[in-house]
Measured scan of single mutants.
Amino acid sequence: MIVFVRFNSSHGFPVEVDSDTSIFQLKEVVAKRQGVPADQLRVIFAGKELRNDWTVQNCDLDQQSIVHIVQRPWRKGQEMNATGGDDPRNAAGGCEREPQSLTRVDLSSSVLPGDSVGLAVILHTDSRKDSPPAGSPAGRSIYNSFYVYCKGPCQRVQPGKLRVQCSTCRQATLTLTQGPSCWDDVLIPNRMSGECQSPHCPGTSAEFFFKCGAHPTSDKETSVALHLIATNSRNITCITCTDVRSPVLVFQCNSRHVICLDCFHLYCVTRLNDRQFVHDPQLGYSLPCVAGCPNSLIKELHHFRILGEEQYNRYQQYGAEECVLQMGGVLCPRPGCGAGLLPEPDQRKVTCEGGNGLGCGFAFCRECKEAYHEGECSAVFEASGTTTQAYRVDERAAEQARWEAASKETIKKTTKPCPRCHVPVEKNGGCMHMKCPQPQCRLEWCWNCGCEWNRVCMGDHWFDV
């Protein structure tokens, strides 16, 4: 396979590697080409510095992935760790964990309700045991953590790749202090920090972006993250068709209702045909949960890209028209025109101005929308079919299609509260000796007794199943 190397943020060049090629071997190839010592090179990928003893497969490097290699003399205490030698983080029983690669970060837990604080980093599902597709590297999971809308060759929703760059020099040479644990960490600028490894760059702020994971991409090709779309790892039924499908869209209502993408497309087109989208002054033209839940309008309007190009163009047109109407304007009634106009409040005669090729020149009556006339309008008909009709959803289907309910059931079956801080902690095999993952707590306690870890627990039921 081919990976592209950008040395000291210059133009990239291809390097041929195998899945079992080590990072140090990659350094040696680059060092020979650039005429520099291999031990002064640092390989940066997806916000993480890659260790010498890791392989291309370990690092989730795919065909035509772009890695950054910078030349920086080692500072005291760094060289041993980078070589894969006596790194205290690798000691058996050590409590410190390697910062998780962005290629394996899962933010789907952050669609849980606000009262489930902490689960994004504490609760991990076991539903990723799908067998890898044919042709994928051994052991590589097909679980997708992110979804994007690819405006490039795909023109559809695709699995996405999370990447990070330095907000100062805009190069992907920043190593994160810690990985993101929720969508806010990724979507809110300057929320996460790190250290830029580019020479002479003092940058410390992280800037995240997404790429389409279905095809090789260049540095400049980015895609918009659709953070309401998630892999259906909890096997929730769709609120409309009641099938279990994946991926799904999880509405931001209190129940976190789930809808499959085909039904979401149908829901949007139906509402669009009836012009029953909601115009929100802050958000724009949007839709609420299909069950009509309060405070559930979709905030990231790129989710409506699921409509496809033709329907999305209609959505944008109707949204612009609705904006004009909300501002007190009118639409030209001549067939084939429909231009938005903003006449004076007491102006009865409205002319669709033909300047700049935008208007048709038609003069019409503001009251009856017919060709302009003197005197009273002959008839004014009330528009028919403008009443909002509820999208029919079966109550039982709505009850079963809740992301929140599956989460709470998982928590109930696989977790116990920490005796000190009461945060839910998952036990997935292993011994009875637990350690609270909350940095402010870190209590060592017994899963069996529910009390602080002691010699009695150690001698009596340390390794009970």
Rank of each mutant, 00 (worst) to 15 (best):
Y391S: 06
A371L: 08
G160A: 15
R392N: 09
C59N: 01
N190W: 07
L41S: 01
C268F: 06
V15Q: 02
N235Q: 10
S65F: 03
N313M: 12
P281V: 07
G213H: 06
L50K: 00
S223Q: 07
Y312R: 02
C446F: 02
K48L: 03
E16G: 06
C368K: 03
G336P: 05
E395T: 11
L249V: 08
C352Q: 02
L226A: 02
R75N: 14
L119D: 15
P437A: 07
T351S: 11
N428V: 15
H461N: 01
T21L: 05
T414D: 11
A120H: 12
S22H: 09
E79S: 12
K76V: 15
C436L: 01
I44Q: 02
N356W: 05
S223E: 09
N356I: 12
F364P: 02
K412S: 12
P333N: 03
P137G: 13
V15R: 01
D460P: 02
N235C: 07
S145E: 03
R392A: 12
W183A: 01
A401G: 07
H279S: 08
G194V: 05
K408M: 11
N235W: 05
R402M: 10
E452N: 15
G328H: 05
Q276W: 04
G430M: 15
P73A: 08
C169N: 01
Q276K: 09
S181D: 10
F13P: 00
P14E: 03
N313C: 09
K413T: 14
K161L: 11
Q197V: 10
D53C: 06
C154P: 00
C323M: 14
E16H: 12
R33F: 04
T237F: 05
I298C: 01
V30G: 00
C449D: 04
I23C: 02
D185W: 00
D262G: 04
M80S: 11
F4W: 13
L283R: 09
A383E: 12
V465Q: 15
I306G: 03
A405G: 10
A383W: 09
G385W: 08
S167P: 03
T410I: 08
Q317P: 01
C289S: 02
V3E: 03
D346F: 12
P153S: 12
P216H: 11
V456T: 15
E96I: 09
H302Y: 10
N295A: 07
E374R: 06
Q400K: 15
P153K: 10
Q252L: 05
P133E: 12
H68M: 03
H227W: 10
A134S: 11
A230Q: 13
S22I: 03
V111F: 11
G354D: 15
I44G: 01
M192L: 13
C241W: 00
L107Y: 14
R33K: 10
C154N: 00
A230F: 07
G203E: 03
K151Y: 12
I298Q: 00
A38L: 07
C182F: 04
N52Q: 04
D464S: 15
L342R: 08
K349G: 06
L228G: 03
H265I: 07
A31G: 10
C268Y: 02
L297G: 03
P216D: 14
E367A: 07
Q63S: 13
P37C: 08
M327I: 08
N448E: 03
I229K: 02
S167N: 10
D394M: 06
P73T: 09
A172K: 12
R72Q: 15
T388I: 13
I44D: 00
D106K: 09
F209V: 15
Q40E: 15
C212S: 01
F45V: 14
T204W: 04
Q40D: 15
A339L: 12
L226M: 10
H302T: 14
N190S: 11
K48H: 06
P294S: 12
D53L: 02
E367G: 07
G385R: 08
C436Q: 00
A138S: 12
P424V: 06
D53W: 04
G375K: 09
R256K: 14
C421G: 02
L331A: 04
T175I: 15
A92L: 14
C289R: 00
R128N: 13
N81D: 15
Q440V: 09
G354S: 10
S407F: 09
E207A: 07
I298V: 07
G93R: 12
F24R: 10
R42D: 07
F146Y: 12
E28C: 07
V29W: 12
Q316V: 11
A291H: 06
A398Q: 14
V117W: 06
A225D: 02
Q57H: 07
C418L: 01
Q78C: 14
S22L: 05
P37V: 07
A172G: 12
E300W: 04
R396A: 11
G135F: 10
A82P: 14
L272V: 02
L342H: 09
W445H: 05
C360L: 02
L26W: 00
V36F: 04
I259Q: 09
L287K: 01
T386V: 12
D464T: 15
K211L: 12
K151V: 09
D219P: 09
I306A: 09
F381T: 08
C337G: 03
S233M: 08
V258K: 00
V157D: 02
C352G: 02
N81G: 15
R392H: 11
L102D: 11
A320P: 09
D60I: 06
S286V: 02
D460N: 07
C95F: 14
V5L: 04
R334I: 12
C377K: 02
G355C: 09
A397D: 13
N58R: 12
S205E: 11
C263V: 01
V465C: 15
G203Y: 02
T240H: 06
G179P: 14
P288H: 05
A230V: 09
